[in-house]
Structures are given as C-alpha cells and as structure tokens.
Design a protein around this nucleic acid. Sequence first.
DNA 1: GGTTAGCACTCATTCAGAGAGAGTGCTAAC
DNA 2: GTTAGCACTCTCTCTGAATGAGTGCTAACC
Lengths: 343, 343
Amino acid sequence: MNDTLSERSRQILEAIIDDYIRTAEPVGSRSVTRRHGLTLSPATVRNVMSDLEEMGFLASPHTSAGRVPTDKAFRFYVDSLLQVRAIDPDQQDEIRNRYRGRCRDVGEILKDTSRILSSISHYIGIVIAPRFAADVFRQIEFMQLCDRRILAILVSESGVVQNRIIESDEKLDTEDLVRMSNYLNNLLKGLTISEVKKRIVREMEDEKVRYDALLSRALKLSEQTLDDSSAEVFIEGQVNILEQPEFADVEKMKDIFRAFEEKSQLLALLDRCMDAERVNIFIGTENFLSRMNRMSVVTAPYASGPNTLGILGVIGPTRMGYDRVIPIVDYTARILTELLGRE
Amino acid sequence: MNDTLSERSRQILEAIIDDYIRTAEPVGSRSVTRRHGLTLSPATVRNVMSDLEEMGFLASPHTSAGRVPTDKAFRFYVDSLLQVRAIDPDQQDEIRNRYRGRCRDVGEILKDTSRILSSISHYIGIVIAPRFAADVFRQIEFMQLCDRRILAILVSESGVVQNRIIESDEKLDTEDLVRMSNYLNNLLKGLTISEVKKRIVREMEDEKVRYDALLSRALKLSEQTLDDSSAEVFIEGQVNILEQPEFADVEKMKDIFRAFEEKSQLLALLDRCMDAERVNIFIGTENFLSRMNRMSVVTAPYASGPNTLGILGVIGPTRMGYDRVIPIVDYTARILTELLGRE
DNA sequence: GGTTAGCACTCATTCAGAGAGAGTGCTAAC
DNA sequence: GTTAGCACTCTCTCTGAATGAGTGCTAACC
C-alpha cells in the first residue's frame, strides 16, 4: 500500500481531523469544502475521502454519516501534520502560579501537578510518583513508635520521602536505631536506589557484618524499607471526561472509570515512556488497554538532575487538541523537573 | 401533625422501604401485599399509603407510579425500624485480612481503609486523614535538602507522619538542625498539636528565646510545619455508584462526580461528625450538599487512644442497605482504631 | 368503622411508521 | 482530472396508538 499522500489529500485529511476535533461528529464532504477555503467541489473531496478510507485513514460509521479519522489518521496527524505551538504565555503563567504557595512535600507537589494538568488541559491529569530505582539515596532514619514498631523514613536526593512502618522481631532502643541509621547512611550515601539494593545484599554476606547482630538487623530493616513495588499514581479531573460528547453514553463512561481504577495497568503503560526523551503519545488502541481504546495519552518524563524520576501526562479523547495539550505537558514536565531539582 | 404510626402503618412503611431498597423503583400497593405476607387487600394498603404520603413519609413521582420513601421515611427507618445486624463473620474476616500484609505507613493504611470500605459495601469508601489538632506530638526532625530547603518530618503519637519542605531564609548547617529538633522535642513532647501551637506562640515571646536566634528560628520552622489547613481525603470506589440504577442518567452522574471533586465540602460535612460517639448517618438532603441530595453518608470516628483522630464512612444512594453498611462502617472504624493504637 | 371490590382515570413507556436531512457513490458531462 | 446531478441509504425525530402499572374514589360488605 502506498502511504504517501498528495499535498491535496493531506490538506483534506487535516481539514477533516480539525473538524472532527472541534465537533466530535463525522465530517461530510460539503463541510470540508465550506470551512476550509479549498476551491474544490464536494464531489472531488468525496473521491479523495474515498481514497483516504481505502488507505485506512478514515472510517465511516455508516453509509450516510460522513467520515471519522482513524487512530492511524491521528498518528499521521501528530507525526507529520501537527505544528506544535509554543505554549500560550497565559497558560505558562498559570502553571507557574499554581505551583507557588505554601511549603509542601513532594507528594503534594505531585498531586498538585496532576490537578494543574487537568485543569489547564481540560482533560485528565496523571502523574506517577518517582520510581525510586533511578533516584539517589540520601538518608535513612528510624524512629521508635511502640515496642515492636519502627518508623523508617527514607529520603532521596530529589526530596522524595518515603515513610514505612516496620514490625521488628526484637525490641530496639533509640541508641540502637541511631547507630543503625549512621551505619546505613555512611554505607549507602550517593548510590542510586537500585545500586543500594545490590549493595545491601553484598554487605549481608560480608563476614564482619554477619557477626554483628545490629548491623545485619539494620540491613534487614533497610531492605524492607526499600521494597517499593507499588508506585503511586495521581489522577485528577476525571469529571472532565464527562463533558466529552463521545462518552455521553453510560456504558462507555463506566468502562473508562473502571480503567482508571486499575491503576496498575496505567502504571505499566506509563512506565513504557520512562526512556523517552520528551513528549510521547499513545493514540487510541496503541495503548493496548481495551477499556481506553478511544482515549489518547500524552506523556512526558520529569527528572531530578540527570535521572528520570517519573512520568506525567494528560489523558483525553483520541480527538483531543494535541497542539494545545503537547506544549502543556511538555512545559509542566519542565517546571516540575525544575522544582524537584537541586538549585 | 400526629407522627405516631399504628403498628400496621409501620409494617407497610417498612415493606415499602425494603422493596425500594431492593429495586430502586417506586413501590405500588399490590407489590406490598404480594411480597410481605400481609393479609390485606391492595385497596387497604392504598389507604394507608395515602396517609403516609400525607405525613410526609412517601412521595409519588407521578400519579400512576407507585410511591417512593422520602428522606423522612429513611430517617424514621434508621432511627426506629432498623435492626442493625451483627456484622457478617465472613466480612469481618475479609476486613481483617485485607489489612494484613506488608509494612506500610499510615497514609497507605488510610487509603486501604477507604478501598476496603468501598469494596465490601459496594458503595463509596471515604476516609479523612487524622486531623492533627487532636493528635499528640511525638517528634520533629529536620533534614537539610539543599542550601535553603529543609525537610521537616513531624510524627504524632498515632504514627501519622507529615513531611513538609520549608524554604528557610538563611543557611543552616546540620548541627544547627539537630540542636533545633532537640530543643523542640523537649519543649513539645506530649502536648496535643493544638496545644503545641499555643505553646509555640507563648515561647516565642519568652525573653530568653527572643535573644537566641537559633531557638526562635526553630520555633518559626515548627510553626510552618504545623500549618495544616488541608486535611487529606481518601475516596475510593466511585465507579460503584455507576451501577446504581437511579444514577444511570448522565447529568446526575456528572453532578455526583463533581461533588466528589469538591473535597473541602465533603470534609466540612464529615468534620461535623467528629464528636459523635459511634456511627452517624446523614440521609439525603440532611447533608446539605445540593449535589449529593440523593446520597446518604454513614460515618464513624476512628481514634488513637482517647483522641478521635478522623472520620471514615461509606457514601451510597439514599436507598442503601443500611443494615448491612452500618456494621461494616462500625467494625472497620474499630479495626482501624486498633491498628493505629499503641499496643 | 374498617375493609374490600370495582371501575374510571392518569401517566410513563414502548413501538411502528412517516418524513426530514445529511451524506454517499455512481454516472455522465465538462 | 473535475464537477453536477441524482438515486440511494441510513439516522434522527416526531407522532400517535397501544400497553400497563398504579392510583383515587365510590359503593358494598362484615
């Protein structure tokens, strides 16, 4: 199949996509000629549209309903047609301003980020919390809660704090805890979390350590603290999707909300973007979540220093305004990176 | 108006409420006689229903549609008719089991609680994080992040950890920070957070402190750490509401989801239950949130030791199965209290 | 007096059929 | 290659009739 499109076909395809993004309705040949200053008759446009359908860029819901761009069309649009605008200065200001405010911990900043993404894009904002693995160990502290319970506080270089309550087998007093954290802090400082894990295993086999009950206990505790299987996902603005005409149907809505409950799947999807340099886009079925097959996801990684920490993004209908959303996601990721970075 | 009901009226009202809870449909006079072994004719039941409507217990959506219990009817039902069952032992086990598992911090426990409430009740689970005010100060620590940024970690007796990043005016070195936290920990130990706040203000006026730059800086930092206007709210299982037939309409659904976005209002509502001894119920319009006027909220306080910390509950349609939900909420609150308590 | 049977009436819901409107595909002419 | 014309298809909306659930009222009954 020959996928190279003539200049005219491209113009028509773009016109159809633009129209569809605006209206969410199938686009007919007449409205293409009317609204886009092409000096062509509807009949000609129909011929072209027929070709585009053949090539898989358009689909018709039924015989007399105009045509709808397919995922393939949107992919082509995003890759070849789209002129990504610079971000609107007003939005830029708004994003910056929304971050200002009281002192907060990283968790709150991420939640806010998700909220900002959603309210500025008018779609759904999503942020996954830093995957510890790539982050650098800074400090670990233990606090006695009650006899058997210890609160472990782990801080990474990017300022992410992880609290964890650990049940200990034996009673430990405050001095033990201080000694333990000193030992660990010295041992692990500057390593990434994934290096830390390896280091702990290695250290445990060390002769000297094996005979020091306290040290080996410390290593065990730190191992438990680091066990970070469940990354947090912040999703905000799900209501926005209710405004989209294509989801006015209750069944479709249920599907989407269910998809958002299964955070692990979303996580897996977004994890796939961890290596991307900048903005990444999944269109429709490309995301492989059957419940989200009419949605697109625009993601960008955020970082702290050289390490990619996590992913943020916007989820919206396949026909979202990519030209508007892409710069929002990109800019927000940059600001968040700035906020988390060490100045 | 005479609100005392004859035994028969009560039976009929209860039958109607039961039916309505089961079906979400207006209940007609015939189905009352059919399904509840009353040896009465539909006509008689109609007379009684007419009286009940007069008294405000029933309402008819239109002339030929049977009758629907009003909020007043549910209030009467909950107060006078309802036999709260003991909790189902299976559910009891399930709740306990769901809490078992890896070591977690309090935030995660609360989120899990909300998830448990939702999945066992099949409605929406809600938990508000401990309102610090009533909790007891245990410990505060500071960590240097970068030049100007300090991470403050505040732990309360109930194990709630609050992290906060504070921008400091001046550079502080690690020793300063240790001295500061020692000073504060000595000063504040054992006070409730609201006492702590007062104490800080008092201490700041102290002559000795005013001339010690470090101490007054410490007080300032702790003040910033304690500034806790926004309590966290965990809401889970919003999808469940989509299963309820009375919300099949898209507009109503939007309303409800919007209500859940305005967490501050929910917070205000639940805050009103802080003083309740045990289970508290808001039925329909009693909750004063116009968007939630077809929903009820069943709440219970959870505590740590003698101090009520926060509120948890279940939100469902006005016609929810109160006999099933009340013991679930009550029991979960007890388990959570147990988990947060110091053994 | 409370209870019941009977009957007219109301109102929502469902279904079929007609008509309008939007859009296509094809053909023949330009 | 482009266009005008036309038959055709399909959805959507409106209408009216039939259906059925349920009520309120009245008069008879125990």
